[in-house]
Computed example of a mutant assay.
Amino acid sequence: MNSYEAAFDSKAFLGSAGPGRAVQQFRKNQAIFAQGDEAESVLFLQRGRAKLVVMSEQGKEGVVAILQPGQFFGESGLIGRRRLSTAVALEDCVVTTLANTMLISTLQREPGMCEFFLTHLLKRNCRVEEDLIDQLLNSSEKRLARLLLLLADFSAGDTAKSLPVDISQETLAEMIGTTRSRVSHFMNKFRKLGFINYNGHIEVYPSLRSAIAPDKARLPDGEARSSG
């Protein structure tokens, strides 16, 4: 714990109600906020998982993120923008709602909270960049493998990990920008290769990492080398 955290306990602050902040509970499939709503607060996910969904003017829907406990979301209000997406609980959730004015004053007053919040923003920015590179450069098969590994969130020593929530193949397809039939094809392939198992619930094995290993390039003389 650094000196900032010793003076200000960010996790305790985010886990309790107080002036300008409230703790709310949401049931599975309940909307937390809707795209286009006034963004008067930032939210912190204490418990449970949620998804962020965007809807185009033509009615096309896409899942852009799966939120894990310990993440902020809905920060667009801090720069005066409306909600850019709809947040929906994937399971029962506990959420802390932080009024924009209160959060800004806390960030200005408490270096520990400012550090905690900025760390979240930097991590998310890196994730967005990685997702963009993934969409631009990788095949849909590799995008699916990477998504499953991210959702599984392996720790050192894990030999298998079940996905924290039930996610349909339609949702997986939306998140990687392909069709459900392609996702079904790749899921069957991964299962045959022993990378995953599913029987109503998806279980991921670390061996799935081999599916996102760099492709091999061929030298003129026929010798292989890594493209990375």
Rank of each mutant, 00 (worst) to 15 (best):
V95W: 03
T171M: 08
G194K: 08
T101V: 15
G59K: 02
F33I: 03
R124M: 11
F117I: 10
D158R: 10
A211T: 04
S168V: 06
Q108R: 14
R225K: 15
E130I: 00
T96Y: 04
L84G: 11
L98T: 02
P111G: 02
Q35H: 09
L136T: 01
G62L: 09
S56G: 05
Q135K: 11
R21I: 06
N197A: 15
L103D: 02
P220R: 15
Y4M: 09
P19D: 13
F73H: 03
T159E: 15
F73I: 01
N29S: 14
N2P: 12
G18R: 04
D134C: 10
L122R: 13
A34M: 13
I32M: 05
F72N: 00
E57I: 02
L208I: 09
R27E: 01
K192H: 14
A34I: 13
A224F: 09
Q25C: 03
P19G: 05
P69A: 03
T178K: 12
D215W: 13
E75N: 07
E223P: 03
Q68D: 09
L163G: 06
E170S: 14
G80P: 02
C93D: 12
G36S: 08
A6H: 14
G80F: 01
S168E: 06
D158I: 01
G157N: 05
P220I: 01
S85C: 07
G36H: 09
S155A: 12
V54D: 00
L151R: 05
F186G: 02
T106R: 00
N197P: 01
F72G: 00
F72E: 00
T86I: 07
H185Y: 12
E223H: 10
E61I: 14
G80Q: 02
E57Y: 03
G18S: 05
F195L: 08
P220G: 12
E38L: 11
I79A: 03
Q30H: 11
F33K: 01
H120T: 03
I196Q: 00
A213P: 07
A6G: 05
V94H: 02
R47D: 05
R124W: 13
S168L: 04
